[in-house]
Amino acid sequence: MATPTVVPIDKIIPHTVKPREDTGLNNVKIGIWLFLASEVMLFGGLFASYILLRVGADRWPRGEEYLSIPWATANTLILIASSVTMVMAWASCIRKDFGKYRLYMGLTVLGGLGFMIIKYIEYTSKFHHGYFPSTNTFLAVYFTLTGLHALHVLSGMIVNLYFWGPGAKMWHTEHERFTNRVETAGLFWHFVDLVWIFLFPILYLL
């Protein structure tokens, strides 16, 4: 019986790992940026709706009337720190240091978990006070934007957890491809964090 030969993925689908000479980009990077462009349109539409609702309202409450700024500050710092650990995880891939990679990727996942726990505390506090999306337009906007954002954080956590755990097998078989995957996950994570950087001031401070 003949032994099956392993064909490099780039021979089957060109530029899966190696970038094209003319663009300098591989398929994965093109794909994630097209996806992020669609995400910009999604959040951009919601931000535009927020602006129109706000300028059209007779009275718009300040965020601090309903929301907890200290909790949101903690969440902002957590997400900024998790972006740093995400980049460190990618850098550890480039340096081929598996132990450091697992450490930084694990910290990134924990950062996401911390964010979600604080979001849970915030949401339950609102519900206990009788604040629901149906209470007023401000809270409807708040729950829509932060709820959608929290779903994105959860998605990023699932992807990062996969690359921390079972997905890390690829480290030993196709290291360059795995590094590209981690970079792609990092681009998504940074996008999610950047959305929060905009959400925090417009919902809580202004």
Binding site: K29, S83, E183, G186, H190, P201
Partner: peptide, 25 residues
């Protein structure tokens, strides 16, 4: 744009936010 470039943009925006928020607080 690589993760390096996006990270630099993120750090710049985060710095501006933290400065603005610090002054506001």
């Amino acid at each position: 744009m690589s993760l390096k470039a996006f990270h630099v943009v993120f750090v710049v925006v985060a710095t501006l936010l933290m400065t603005g928020f610090g002054v506001w607080s």
